[in-house]
Amino acid sequence: MTPVERLFLDQKSLQSAIEALHAICTSPEPPLRESLAQIRWTFARTLMRHLQLKDRVVYARLRNHPDPLVQATGERFRREAFELYARFEQHSERWTADAVAADWQTYRAMAAQMIRMLNDRVAREEAELLPHLDSAPDLPVLRTEQDHNWAAAGWKMRAWFGVDREEAIPPAAISPPSEARAAPARRGLRPRPVLPLPPSPPRSPRRV
């Protein structure tokens, strides 16, 4: 499988994760706490993996495209990705497992808004960004200085969603407040060490 084929396959996985989150948020009653935590974490994990793949397969190639206009398009989408992910992080931190349980209806509305935003992004990528890969140089999939550490908030998200307790988060995985709140454009300028994605949680649903 080529890197581009893997990218499009991963894009389908992301769409499936979005659909699973949307489906559970259509219910007027909250689902099992553990079920929602698993679906939210699966979505977040898939999104982080996909953004990393975009860095190495899409943006790296378009950065070296012979057409300056295509280079500019790739850079615009790359910067937009920082803004989108920052909004997703803020949404995730705001809507912890306890916050969702306390106000399911508002969470549903906010999650639907976020899902529409992501679907719009996917549609624009397919129309304006990904077609340029056909004329881009075929570069090896390597980590570069331009790559962003999308997985840096992974452990925190697991705690926010209710997958892990706060005390279970490795101290090294917690960023200082100033870094966690840095502006998206600034955060994209200096790469941080890549943390491995946490393992998927065990499935043991219980009702709350």
Rank of each mutant, 00 (worst) to 15 (best):
1 M>L: 03
3 P>M: 01
6 R>F: 03
6 R>C: 08
7 L>W: 05
9 L>Y: 13
13 S>F: 12
15 Q>L: 14
16 S>C: 02
17 A>Q: 01
19 E>F: 13
22 H>Q: 11
23 A>R: 15
27 S>T: 13
30 P>C: 06
31 P>D: 08
34 E>P: 12
36 L>F: 14
36 L>P: 12
37 A>D: 00
38 Q>D: 08
45 R>F: 04
46 T>Q: 13
50 H>M: 00
50 H>G: 03
53 L>G: 06
55 D>R: 01
60 A>R: 14
63 R>D: 10
63 R>M: 04
72 A>D: 11
74 G>S: 06
76 R>G: 08
76 R>A: 13
78 R>M: 01
79 R>T: 15
90 Q>D: 10
92 S>L: 04
93 E>Y: 02
96 T>F: 02
98 D>R: 11
100 V>H: 05
103 D>P: 05
106 T>Y: 01
107 Y>I: 05
108 R>E: 08
110 M>P: 01
110 M>D: 14
113 Q>I: 07
114 M>G: 02
114 M>R: 13
115 I>W: 06
115 I>V: 14
118 L>N: 08
118 L>V: 13
121 R>F: 14
121 R>Q: 14
122 V>D: 11
123 A>W: 07
123 A>R: 13
126 E>P: 04
128 E>M: 12
129 L>H: 08
129 L>M: 09
135 S>K: 12
136 A>H: 07
136 A>Y: 03
137 P>R: 03
141 V>W: 06
143 R>E: 13
143 R>C: 09
145 E>P: 03
149 N>M: 04
152 A>I: 11
155 W>M: 01
156 K>D: 10
157 M>S: 07
159 A>Y: 04
164 D>H: 11
164 D>N: 10
166 E>W: 10
167 E>G: 02
168 A>M: 05
169 I>T: 05
177 P>S: 08
179 E>L: 15
183 A>S: 12
184 P>M: 03
185 A>K: 14
186 R>F: 14
186 R>D: 14
188 G>A: 07
190 R>V: 15
190 R>G: 04
191 P>T: 05
193 P>E: 00
194 V>S: 13
196 P>F: 02
197 L>Y: 03
199 P>H: 06
200 S>Q: 07
200 S>Y: 09
201 P>K: 00
203 R>M: 05
203 R>S: 13
207 R>L: 12
207 R>W: 15
